[in-house]
Design a binder for these strands. Structure first.
Lengths: 345, 345
DNA sequence: TTGAAAGCGATACCAA
DNA sequence: TTGGTATCGCTTTCAA
């Protein structure tokens, strides 16, 4: 065995082996606990590992074994929108419990950001990728197809996913809300949300919503805050804009509960009563809804569970277990008291 | 040059080189743009890269060059607490703009989780680590010292950091709030927060708060929700508990604005007027404060900027630029209208 | 301007 | 139960 100097002062397997007076291979076997060594050897090697503070270089492991890493790339549009923060939390908790790590990519709702992030993250030989959304650039799609690793597209359920998909049908959830509001007797309905360069689930939701409302004889007046984060203040401000422009809006549907709360605050600050003077409907059933004095009309979506499920599907595939490629995580309309129900009218 | 088969069907540098009729080295040089090749060669190689859809294996690069990767490990306690979601967003945006990637670790407020995450992430040869909090287990501290990579401890400003530190002095911020509330004439003051196994910045803040209140002749009644996430409902529920147990609490200080809003909702639901019947003070100046009809008394902390600064310090160190090891990002008390000011009494 | 060889730290495979 | 050798994909180094 030739003597070698370690460039960086890190302790390598070779050092451990020499210190223990065994070969690299023996030390390697002990560390992997794959058996094929005496108890005495094991004790000796482990002792040296401790003494020298040896930390394995997993890069070399991946490299040698031609395996993948324990990285899972996770792309998320932004974290200011609480919805996605919860999804990410669900993903990372579950991945972490199986000793995988999330490599984060905040794509800021653009396909260019996503594409460049995908290129970089793929070069690190990740075990798999979890991507928010179903729309990717052409080059991104190409890279994804060639990557040969599991890919879970989340959020917007995709019946013909690249590989796996979990989420909900946003069109339907929008449609259901639209039909519900029409059923409540509203016809001049507003929508307040945000808007970005890229087609998004929120857009799909709005499409479904419009279809139901218009199909039910109503009209939708849209107010989209460009490039804003879907949170409290844009909801407040968007409502102000919408009502200033609009004529006789009776009810407003928001991109999420945070925006809806912003809108609710604007309306009550203007002296409007909810739901008598105006109806308010949110989406997502976010934690803030639990402390409001009225039950906010909303759409329950299990964000944390969605993230967990995505991670579970990824892990199942990595373990070569059978996985259903499409999982609809479902949603549930919460009637709430911030819109007038027919029975109250 | 011996013929080799690529195990996985990935295209390697060798394939590109062969296709272009040059050696691996020439192809490598072209790809790194380090010069030392003809324009003709460059064009040819790049063309083959495109044709074959070659993606470099950066693991091999790091490995060969004995460099570090472009990974930065980022540990965060949890993402349900909006405060940390914003910090993470600040970090990842900035890191991303310098082509570094965050490898996330949600430590759930425990040192054991942190330690095991540190061990794993170090084995992937990260460029550096950004850790939330200043308290680490003994073994973690040892590993961090030996890692020989930049480490930024954030959130809780550390005057003798392992390497670099950015954050605020939580003790002082608590102290200032305590003094302020005493100055408002309150003496029986409540605190509602969450509590975890590990010493945390919130605990330090509470210590500072108690010191100021008690030093000013007041008393603090604490209500800590164990293992809960610092968000709306625990604020609501904690307030209920506190007021049920307590005797004549005049004002409540919360761990953050989300909890404070939960408390505010509980109080008004009980028919209490704020601030006439009870004072409410939050912390963090979170986005929700922007849509409330009263200005919430709070403590402004630039979360996003804190994250960005942490990333900037990391990048500066990685670029061998001089860095001030401790950066106090500061805070600012927002008097608000949810507590009674002396002038109003 | 180009190429051949050695080696990074681990594991697979075969031999002892 | 143990050890030697080739190898992963790339860069460093030296030679042409």
């Amino acid at each position: 065995m030739k003597e070698k100097l370690i460039k960086n002062n890190k302790v390598s397997l070779l050092q451990v082996a020499r210190a223990a007076g065994v070969s690299k291979m023996t030390a390697s076997r002990v560390l992997r606990g794959e058996g094929g060594y005496s108890e005495q050897t094991r004790t000796l090697v482990m002792q040296k590992v401790d003494e020298l503070g040896y930390l394995p270089n997993r890069l070399a492991t991946v490299f040698a074994g031609d395996k993948t890493s324990t990285f899972v790339g996770v792309s998320i549009p932004d974290l200011g929108n609480e919805v996605f923060a919860h999804v990410l939390e669900g993903i990372d908790r579950k991945l972490g419990s199986f000793d995988y790590q999330s490599v984060l990519g905040l794509t800021q709702h653009t396909q260019e950001e996503e594409e460049s992030w995908i290129r970089t993250v793929l070069s690190w030989q990740p075990a798999g990728l979890i991507l928010t959304g179903r729309y990717h650039s052409k080059r991104a799609t190409e890279m994804l197809r060639n990557a040969g690793i599991p890919i879970v597209e989340i959020w917007d359920l995709n019946s013909s996913p690249l590989d796996l998909s979990v989420g909900i049908n946003h069109f339907d959830s929008g449609f259901d809300m639209g039909r519900f509001l029409i059923g409540c007797g509203y016809s001049k309905i507003g929508y307040v949300g945000t808007s970005h360069d890229t087609a998004s689930a929120a857009t799909t939701r709005l499409d479904g919503f419009c279809k139901a409302v218009e199909g039910g004889g109503g009209q939708v007046a849209k107010q989209l805050c460009l490039h804003d984060t879907a949170t409290y203040y844009p909801g407040y401000y968007g409502t102000e804009q919408l009502l200033a422009a609009g004529s006789g809006i009776e009810c407003i549907f928001y991109q999420n509960d945070a925006m809806a709360f912003g809108g609710l605050q604007y309306c009550t600050a203007q002296g409007m009563r909810v739901p008598q003077d105006i109806g308010i409907a949110g989406w997502g059933d976010l934690p803030i809804a639990s402390v409001l004095d009225q039950r906010l009309t909303s759409m329950h979506v299990p964000h944390l569970k969605l993230g967990q499920t995505a991670a579970e599907m990824m892990i199942a595939r990595l373990s070569n277990e059978p996985v259903d490629p499409c999982k609809d995580i479902g949603f549930r309309l919460i009637p709430g008291s911030t819109v007038s129900h027919p029975t109250n009218r």
